[in-house]
């Protein structure tokens, strides 16, 4: 009753304390999001399209980058940031094709965050680059929560993983700006992967992202992916605002409670 004036204080509770509730309403990832916004400014100042590639381990991210470098190397200037728990292997695969690559080994962390990408940018000559690919750590859960400052999320789902992965990992597939159903050369061997059903699962996440089917073993299947990439480079060059599809907390904060 008399908490405020302290008249109920006895020798036993002489360490006087005052209690109060502070309303905060901030995003739990605000530190990351600040650095991400800073990265995005870097990219935009240098006219670099930054694409975050996400998938399970082994869905074909590095292979797709190799095929993309092969096909578009003369047309676009590319660079790659590779995220893996361990090893420089993927960065070496990219460098072997004459494209600069920085490897980030995350050790325990199962995702890249904006700070790691920021540090990696110090090793890159952004002025010379049209497209920076950021190959995230293979994981369908954690990477979706961290804005890196990139412009678009590209999520791969290989046809050997099952067409219901979007329903099982809704946060990841909701965040996709483009879904690539990879390793389509296996479709003839796998009778229960239905590309239409995979697309329907993506739509049921209220996501209108294009869903493309491709295989690095079938170079002619890669055209629509290259077109998406070219159009995105042009859109950024024209000054179109490009943010990865889902930045929920930021959006919530900016529109108020």
């Amino acid at each position: 009753m008399c908490d405020t004036c302290g008249c109920n204080v006895t020798p036993g509770n002489a360490h006087l304390v005052d209690k109060k509730t502070v309303d905060v309403l901030t995003n739990l990832l605000q530190e990351n999001d600040h650095v991400a916004a800073h990265n995005r400014e870097h990219f935009e100042r240098h006219g670099v399209l930054a694409v975050n590639l996400m998938s399970s381990p082994g869905s074909g991210k590095t292979s797709l980058l190799e095929a993309t470098i092969e096909a578009l190397g003369n047309e676009l200037s590319m660079a790659v940031i590779e995220g893996d728990l361990e090893t420089e292997n993927d960065a070496e695969r990219i460098r072997a094709r004459g494209v600069p690559a920085v490897q980030i080994t995350t050790g325990q962390a199962c995702h890249l965050d904006a700070h790691m990408v920021h540090d990696a940018l110090h090793d890159m000559a952004l002025d010379d680059i049209d497209v920076l690919f950021i190959e995230n750590v293979g994981n369908l859960v954690c990477p979706a929560s961290f804005d890196l400052g990139h412009h678009a999320n590209v999520t791969l789902l290989s046809v050997t993983e099952g067409d219901d992965k979007p329903a099982k990992y809704p946060v990841m597939f909701r965040a996709a700006d483009l879904v690539l159903l990879s390793k389509s050369d296996f479709l003839e061997m796998i009778d229960d992967f239905d590309t239409n059903r995979a697309e329907r699962h993506v739509r049921e996440l209220a996501n209108a992202a294009p869903v493309l089917t491709l295989s690095v073993k079938r170079p002619d299947s890669l055209g629509p992916w290259f077109d998406w990439l070219r159009e995105s480079v042009i859109a950024l060059g024209e000054g179109r605002v490009m943010n990865p599809r889902v930045q929920p907390e930021g959006a919530t904060l900016h529109s108020g409670p």
Binding site: V24, T252, L253
Partner: peptide
């Protein structure tokens, strides 16, 4: 449904 927010804190201060 997408929120990831710190809403409030209860603090103790010495008088």
């Amino acid at each position: 449904g997408e929120e990831l927010l710190l809403l409030s804190l209860d603090l103790e201060t010495s008088l």
